[in-house]
Design a protein around this nucleic acid. Structure first.
Lengths: 217, 217, 217, 217
DNA sequence: TATGAATGAGACTTCATTCAT
DNA sequence: AATGAATGAAGTCTCATTCAT
C-alpha cells in the first residue's frame, strides 16, 4: 500500500526497482532529518517516505545512527566534494573567481536539497561528535581553504588589500552558508521574502569592493 | 561541562528555595536545548542540571513543550528586546552606527548564553511553527528593521551608495548571526580557531568600505 | 484562597473551625470516592473540596488507604448501625414491618449521601479485601439478618408462605440496594427518570402480595 | 488467580499469532477492568494476562481509554444485543415469558464473563460520561423496554394486575442485575453463600404471584 | 496545627530494533 | 530480499507522600 510517492502517475511494477533501495531510503532520511532533526524523525516516516517497510531499513543500515552517517558520508560528502572540485577549477581574476565560487556554490548546493546539510550538521553536531569532526575536517575546512586561497591570490596580485585571508574567507562564506541554513529553517515563517540571488549579488558586490584596493572608479 | 549547579555546600534532600526555581530550570533547559536540541534533551537532565527533581519541573511548566516556550518567550525574548532597545538608541554617523550595532549585538548577545537561541530556533523551527513565526516576527524582523533603517539613513546622508537597504541589512547581519550559530554547533570541532572580534572587525571594515560611495583615500 | 465551598454566603472566619477538620475531609473523600472510585480520585481534590491543603490530610490520615478506611469505618458504619438499630425496633404485623423496614432504610440511607457506600464497596471490594470482608460481615449480613428475621416471623405467623427466608430477604433487599447504586452511577445518564418512592411502593406491594399466603381478596 | 493464560507450552519470545490478538487483549482487559476497576488496572497486567508485551497493546488500541471503549462497544455490546434478540423472540403466556426472560438473561449473561459489565459500568460511569450514556441508551433502556412490553402484554391479557409496567419491569430486573453485580464484587467475601438459580426462582415466583390478579389457587 | 513546594516511584506511551514469515 | 507484528527500554508525566517552614 505504500507504493505511492512518485511525482507523476502510478508507478508501474518494474519501475519499482529503478532507483536502488538504499538511495531512496537515504534521500527520504535526508529530507526528514533536515526538516525535523535527527531525534525527532521516526524511522516509520523514513520508511513510509521511501516507500519501504520499516524492517527493510535494517537490511541496509544497521541503526538509525548508521543511516545518519550514510546520509552525510555517502551522499552529502561526495556531492560536496564534487562541487568543491568544480569550484576549485575556475580561472580568471580573483574578483571574478570570488564571484564564481559563491555563485557556483549556490548553484550546486544552495539550490539543491544538499543545502539542508549545513542546517542538519549545525543542529546535530554535539550529538554526533565524530561526525561533526569529520564533517568539519572534510567539508568545512576544505571549502574554507579554497576560498582562502583565492583571496590570497587576489592579495598577491594586488587586487585585494592585504588582510587576513582566512578571516576574509569566513566573511565571504558566512552570508552564503547562512542563506542555506535559513532556507531550511525560519525562512518559511518569514513574511519578508527575498531573492537569494539578488542577496548574493549584493553581498559579492559589497565584499569585492570592500576588499579591493582603493580606486576612484 | 558546566560546572555551576550547586551554589554552595551539599544539598539537603528537602530544600525549599523560594522564587528562583523557575529561572534555574529555564536556564538549565536553555543550555541543554541549545546543546542537544529539543527532542534529544531529557527532562531528567534538565532537572539534574537545575538541581531539582523531575517532578519539580511540572510544578512550574506543564509540559516539555511549555518549558520550551518559556525558554524562548519568557527568557530569550525579553533579553532580545532589551538589547534591541539599547541598540536602537545609538547616535552618530551611519558608518559608526553600523559598527556600533554589530559590536553591541555581539556584546549583549553573541558573547552571552543567549547566543544559543538562534541555533535553537533554526534547529526546531519546523517542529514548533507557531513559535517560529512568533520568533521571526518579534525578534528577527524587528532586528532587521533596525539595521535596515541605519543603512537607509546612511544612503540618505550620502555616506552609502544607493542600494536595496533591506538586502544590505541581511548581508550585514548574516556573518554576525552565523558566528553565534557556529559557536554553538561546529566551532568546538573546528581545528581552525579564530577570534570572533577580529572576524567581526574585518567584516565591518569590508562591509562599510564596500557600501560607501567611491572615494580616493 | 480555598475558603469557598459552602452552599450559602461567604464563610466568616470563625466558622472555619465549626466543623472539625477530619469530618470535613472524610465528607469530601466520601463524595469523591463514590463519584470517581478510589484510584481515580486525587488527594489534591479531596483537599480542595475539604478546604484544606494537601499536607493537612496527612495530619489526620496516614495514607490514602487509611482515609478510605476512615470513610467506611468511622463514617458509614456508625450511620449504618444506627439505622439498623432503629429499623430493628419496629413492631407490628410482618407485612407492615417489611414495608417499614424498606421505607426506613430508604429514608435513612437511600436518600442521604450514605447511599453512595454500596456503590463504592461494590466497585472497590476486590482492591480492599479486608475492608470488603469487614463490610460484608458488619453491614451486609447484619442487615440481611434483620430482614430475614422479619420474614421468618411472618412465616411463623402464617402471614407469609413457607419459603427460604434468607433468599426471600435477598429478593426483598435487592431492588432497594440496587436503587441506591443506580442513583450514584448510571441514573444521571438515564433519560427514563423515575420516582424511587413509587418504585419502592410497587416493589413492596408486589413482594408482600407474592409472599403472602393465598387469599381471595 | 485465573489460571488460563498460555494455551499450551512455553512461549517463544518472538511469536506471531495472527488475528486473535485483539480479542485476547480485550478479554484480558475485561477481566481486569471488572475485577479492579479502570484506573486501578495496570496495562502491564493486561499485557501479561493477554500474553503479549506492553507495546503490543498499542498496536491495536491507541490508548488505555480506547481499550476500555473497545471492551464495551466491540465486545460487550454485540453480546448484549445478541442476547436481547434471542430473549425478544420468546412466545407463550406472560407468566411464562417473564420467567423465560429472566432465566435466559441469566444463562446468557449472568453466568458468563459478560456479567462483569454491569459492575464495570456502574463503577466507571461518571468517569466516562459518553460511554455511560451510550450504554444506558443502547443496553439498559433497550432491555428495559423488552421487559416492559412483556408486562404490558400480561396486563392486557388479564394475567397481571393493572400497574405501571415500566416500574414493574424495573422491579423485575433489579434482583437479576444485582445478582450479577454482587457476583463480581462482594460475593467472594460473603460467608453466606447462596444459589443464584434458587434465588432467581424464588424471585420469579414471588414476583409473578405478586403481580397476578387475585386467585384462590 | 497547617501549609504547599518538593520528591520519586510508577504509570502510560513511544519508537528503534528484532525476527518469524 | 522484504515485510510488519512484536518487543522492551526509555521517555514524559502524575500523584501519593514528605518535610522545611
Amino acid at each position: 500500500m505504500p507504493i505511492s510517492r512518485q511525482t507523476g502517475a502510478k508507478r508501474r511494477r518494474w519501475e519499482r526497482r529503478k532507483a536502488s533501495r538504499p538511495e531512496e531510503i537515504v534521500a527520504a532520511a535526508l529530507e526528514l532529518f533536515v526538516e525535523r532533526g535527527f531525534s525527532a524523525t521516526r524511522l516509520d516516516e523514513v520508511a513510509r517516505r521511501a516507500g519501504v517497510s520499516k524492517g527493510t531499513l535494517y537490511l541496509y543500515f544497521e541503526s538509525k545512527e548508521a543511516l545518519f552517517r550514510a546520509v552525510l558520508l555517502n551522499v552529502a560528502l561526495p556531492i560536496l566534494e564534487q562541487a568543491e572540485k568544480r569550484v576549485a577549477d575556475h580561472e580568471g581574476s580573483a574578483r571574478e573567481l570570488v564571484q564564481q565560487l559563491v555563485l557556483d556554490w549556490w548553484g550546486m548546493i544552495g539550490e539543491t536539497r544538499i543545502s539542508g546539510i549545513p542546517k542538519l550538521m549545525v543542529a546535530e553536531a554535539s550529538n554526533f561528535p565524530e561526525l561533526a569532526r569529520f564533517f568539519v575536517d572534510n567539508v568545512v575546512r576544505r571549502g574554507r581553504r579554497i576560498f582562502t586561497r583565492v583571496i590570497e591570490r587576489g592579495i598577491a596580485a594586488g587586487e585585494f588589500r592585504p588582510c587576513n585571508a582566512r578571516y576574509a574567507a569566513r566573511v565571504l562564506m558566512a552570508p552564503m552558508v547562512f542563506a542555506a541554513i535559513w532556507q531550511h529553517s525560519l525562512s518559511p515563517f518569514d513574511a519578508d521574502t527575498y531573492d537569494v540571488s539578488d542577496y548574493l549579488d549584493l553581498h559579492l558586490d559589497v565584499f569585492v569592493r570592500g576588499l579591493s584596493v582603493a580606486r576612484s572608479d
